[in-house]
Design a protein around this nucleic acid. Structure first.
Length: 494
RNA sequence: GCCCCCAUCGUCUAGUGGCCCAGGACGUGGCCCUCUCAAGGCCAAAACCGGGGUUCGAAUCCCCGUGGGGGCACCA
């Protein structure tokens, strides 16, 4: 806890499933804190559970963090001075530390079978007792233990939790938390397969990797005292502990989970960063959004770029209460970030969205369209909805049933023909003159601008909603505009 | 059942004893702008969980309730 010691933080996910925004936020706070303090951000993979291990999960973690713009200084792929950075590759270290605990009287070997433990737990639950190890192996004779172990009898190593007294664990944002040691269990530290459990592995690694601040989910609060006890048993100085609040479902009821997030209709509500990428969200927006769930800067500033977050982040402004995920706010941030992008940058990011929809778009062909839609879209996906017609050859002619109020079929046909003629005769096909000419024509025809432009919009785009019409016609070009207007005029006259 | 954490508008939050009959943002409603849709501008409704203390004074401190969340695995 020395102020002078270098700041080192780690994000230590377990590769057991899809990577979600809860993990992303923990990583983000780690990253921000490390960057602003000139410290190191370390990625450590906690893969000690063979049963739940999923090789695809580590790839998703890496890909997600990269997409979100968080680079780590040490990790399984880049190495570092305290590697390896995968716990499955650090077995010996855990074994050594467990042995040390046994030697110092802080741990013991337990030969109880999983079956016996299950039975014991069941009995305790029926008797409305808290399920805890009954300590049968705790006082085993040293000679017997040695003999059984040497014989190869399967066993685990348990922490010898004090039966009396209290333990105080200090969380940076919650203050001291004191518990009765009697309420704690003799937790398993090493499984019978020789692999450590989180409690041992994480503490040993944090120590060996010189982690100065531990930022982790508040799911660890219940076993926080055990972790402190472990540090004390080893005689180590503790890091600064920071437990981050959990994310709740949008309803505020229950911990955020995949199932409930997907239950909400609307489809776009995913908790996975990579799905957000696919749905047309900007990494800048996702980062901005998750940064503000559990942390705040002041009483008014909400828009942040990554550099601004690095500058403004502070552990002191973290909040301890759980936060319900709010997707409309994500949309809002995405809109803000889309509008803050340069035209060229937005253009570049828009191309893949159109291509994913099967439209033949290039950066060059999209270039004149991007400025027309920048302030109209909230996701990159929406760009396809609003401007996809530019690249489609199958725009439907106006149907009689869709005509704007106050215009009948013969009149509509006539208006479109007149508009086509006007376009044909316009020498200077640019915004100001074309708009002036069109408005004059609307006037001559006795139509309001809304009626007139609505009709043209339908004919030129096949949509009731589009970018500004005059600009749209210019991008479409003279021949295509004339063709589209006449196609509808013709369609309505037959 | 036991243990732990949390508690300000619907949601995210500001607030660390007087600046607060509580500020911002999203969303919602209205108005303006306007060729549609947006964007933008203006306005509005909307909260200190309850009860006891402490104090000249409490959203802020303490206690008790209540509510919500988390945990109680040879998972992390």
């Amino acid at each position: 806890m020395h102020a002078e010691s270098p700041i080192r933080v780690r994000f230590a996910p377990s590769p057991t499933g899809r990577f979600h925004i809860g993990g992303a936020r923990t990583a983000l706070y780690d990253f921000l804190f490390a960057r602003q303090s000139g410290g190191q951000f370390i990625l450590r993979i906690e893969d000690t559970d063979q049963k739940r291990f999923d090789p695809a999960a580590e790839a998703e973690i890496v890909e997600s963090l990269r997409w979100l713009g968080m680079a780590w200084d040490e990790g399984p792929d880049v190495g570092g001075p305290y590697g390896p950075y995968r716990q499955s590759e650090r077995k010996e270290s855990y074994q050594l530390h467990a042995e040390q605990l046994i030697e110092t009287g802080h741990a013991y070997r337990c030969f109880c079978s999983p079956e016996r433990l299950a039975q014991m737990r069941q009995g305790q639950q029926q008797a409305k007792q808290p399920p805890r190890y009954d300590g049968q192996c705790r006082a085993l004779d040293a000679g017997e233990v040695l003999a059984r172990a040497q014989r190869g009898e399967p066993h685990v190593i348990r922490f010898k939790t004090p039966h009396s007294g209290t333990t105080t664990a200090v969380d940076l944002i919650r203050g001291p938390i004191t518990v009765q040691n009697a309420d704690l269990d003799d937790y398993i530290l090493m499984k019978s397969n020789g692999l450590p459990v989180y409690h041992l592995a994480a503490m040993v690694d944090d120590r060996l990797m010189h982690i100065s601040h531990v930022l982790r989910s508040s799911e660890w609060l219940p076993t926080f005292p055990l972790h402190v006890l472990l540090y004390q048993a080893f005689g180590w100085e503790q890091p600064v502990w920071v437990h981050l609040s959990v994310f709740l479902n949008p309803s505020g009821k229950g911990k955020m989970s995949k199932r409930q997030a997907l239950d909400n209709k609307g489809g776009a509500q995913t908790i996975h960063p990579l799905d957000m990428r696919q749905a047309g969200y900007l990494p800048e927006a996702v980062v901005n959004w998750i940064a503000l769930m559990g942390w705040s800067y002041d009483d008014r500033t909400e828009f942040f770029s990554m550099p601004e977050l690095i500058r403004g982040f502070s552990l002191a402004k973290l909040t301890p209460s759980p936060a319900a995920v709010n997707y409309t706010k994500l949309d809002h941030f995405n809109g803000l970030h889309i509008r803050s992008l340069s035209l060229d940058e937005l253009n570049r990011r828009l191309v893949p969205a159109f291509q994913a929809a099967g439209l033949p778009v290039s950066e060059a062909s999209l270039h004149p369209i991007t400025p027309l839609i920048q302030e109209r879209i909230r996701t990159l996906e929406e760009a396809v909805e609003i401007a996809g017609f530019f690249f489609r050859q199958d725009v439907e002619p106006v149907a009689a049933a869709l005509l704007p109020k106050g215009i009948d079929v013969p009149q509509a046909s006539q208006v479109l023909e007149r508009a086509a003629q006007l376009v044909e005769q316009t020498a200077d096909f640019s915004v100001a003159p074309l708009e002036a000419a069109l408005r004059q024509l609307a006037d001559e025809l006795g139509l309001t601008a809304t009626q007139f432009f609505s009709l043209l919009r339908l004919a030129a785009t096949g949509q009731a909603v589009s970018p500004p019409l005059v600009e749209t016609l210019i991008v479409l070009g003279k021949p295509r505009t004339i063709g589209l207007l006449r196609a509808s005029a013709h369609n309505l006259s037959t």
